[in-house]
C-alpha cells in the first residue's frame, strides 16, 4: 500500500462500488430493511469496520471532508487507521470537526453536535440482525421480518422487566423504523437512540462480515422499542464532563488511580474540545483545548 496510484479511487473497483451503491439505494428505499450485498474482503479484518469502510468507499467523492470516529473519538487507533486508509486511497480531506465533515464514519457513537442536511453518517455494524441473539438462524429471522413477527423481541424485553424491573439493554437498543422493520442501530449507547429518528443527515449502516447494508433516510421515524408502562429512557452517567462541564453529553468514565478515583469526560472528543475552546471549562479541564492532553 505504498503506492496509492496502484489502487482505484477509494480503493474498491468500479463494479464493486456499483454493487454496493445499488444496495445502498435499496436500503434507503426500504428504511430499516437489511439488504444483502456481496461484501468484499478488505485489507483490514472483519469486525474492524469493513462494512462501514465499503459503504464509505462507495459514497466518497473527491470533494468530501471525512471524519472517522471510534467510541466518539477521532484519535482512537482504529479510527486513525481507517482515516489514513481513505487519505491514502481517496485523497480526500479529513477533519475532526463534526460540523465541517461531509461524511462521518463511526463506530459506537452518534456525534453530540446535531448533524445537518448534506452530511452522511456511516455506521460500522458488527451484527446487523436485531433478532440474532434471540434466534441465531438467518433463515428464521428473515421469515420473522417478512411476517413482521417481532413477538420474540417483546418477550425478551418483557423478561428483562420481570427480572430487573426495567429493560436491561444499555446499548445496541433496537428501534422500529417507520412502523415496519425492527432495526439494530449498531452498538451505540441507548443515550444516542433519540438521534436516530428525524435526523437531517442520511444514516447508512454497513456490516461487512454479515454482508448487509441498511439505511435511515433523513427525517425517518425510528422509535426505540418499549412498553407503555416502561417507556424508553435515554441514559448516561449522572455527571457533567470534568473537562468541558457539558451537562448533557455522553461520558466516558476514566479511572485515574488505583484508589478508586475517577473522572468523567465527553466521549465525543470534538464536542469537548470545541466547548473548551469556547470557554467552557470543567473542574479538571485546562483553559485551552488540547492543553490537558498530549
Amino acid at each position: 500500500m505504498t503506492d496509492q496510484t496502484a489502487y482505484n479511487f477509494a480503493y474498491l473497483d468500479e463494479q464493486t462500488k456499483r454493487m454496493i451503491r445499488r444496495a445502498i439505494l435499496k436500503g434507503v428505499a426500504i428504511p430499516g430493511y437489511q439488504v444483502p450485498f456481496a461484501s468484499r474482503e478488505m485489507p483490514m479484518p472483519y469486525g474492524w469496520g469493513t462494512g462501514g469502510v465499503q459503504v464509505t468507499a462507495a459514497c466518497l467523492v473527491p470533494e468530501d471532508r471525512l471524519k472517522v470516529i471510534d467510541q466518539g473519538a477521532d484519535d482512537t487507533t482504529n479510527a486513525v487507521s481507517i482515516r489514513r486508509f481513505f487519505q491514502r486511497t481517496a485523497g480526500v480531506e479529513v477533519t475532526e470537526a463534526t460540523a465541517d465533515a461531509t461524511v462521518i464514519q463511526t463506530r459506537h457513537r452518534i456525534p453530540e453536535t446535531p448533524l445537518t442536511e448534506g452530511q452522511i453518517l456511516v455506521y460500522q455494524v458488527p451484527i446487523p440482525e436485531p433478532l440474532r441473539f434471540l434466534e441465531p438462524r438467518e433463515t428464521e429471522t428473515r421469515k420473522m421480518h417478512e411476517l413482521e413477527d417481532y413477538g420474540l423481541m417483546h418477550v425478551k424485553l418483557y423478561e428483562d422487566i420481570s427480572r430487573h424491573g426495567q429493560i436491561a439493554t444499555a446499548y445496541d437498543y433496537p428501534v422500529k423504523v417507520e412502523g415496519r422493520y425492527v432495526m439494530d442501530p449498531s452498538p451505540i449507547p441507548k443515550f444516542d437512540n433519540p438521534k436516530l429518528g428525524g435526523n437531517a443527515a442520511i444514516q447508512l449502516f454497513g456490516a461487512g462480515r454479515e454482508q448487509r447494508i441498511y439505511a435511515l433516510p433523513p427525517y425517518t421515524q425510528a422509535i426505540s422499542l418499549d412498553f407503555d408502562d416502561y417507556p424508553f429512557a435515554a441514559s448516561k452517567a449522572d455527571h457533567s464532563c470534568d473537562l468541558c462541564a457539558a451537562p448533557d453529553s455522553y461520558l466516558d468514565e476514566v479511572i485515574t488511580d488505583d484508589q478508586g478515583s475517577r473522572m468523567f469526560v465527553c466521549s465525543d472528543t470534538d464536542f469537548c474540545a470545541s466547548r473548551r475552546a469556547a470557554g467552557h471549562i470543567g473542574p479538571m479541564g485546562a483553559p485551552r483545548a488540547g492543553a490537558d492532553v498530549e
Binding site: N8, F9, A10, E14, K17, R18, R21, I24, L25, V28, A29, A58, C59, L60, V61, P62, E63, E117, I120, I202, A215, P217, P218
Partner: peptide, 19 residues
Amino acid sequence: DAPRQSARAFRAALEAMAR
C-alpha cells in the same frame, strides 16, 4: 474519469432517493 464522475453522480442519486 469513471471513478470520480460516477462517485459524484451516485451522491446525487443517493441524495435524490433519500430526499
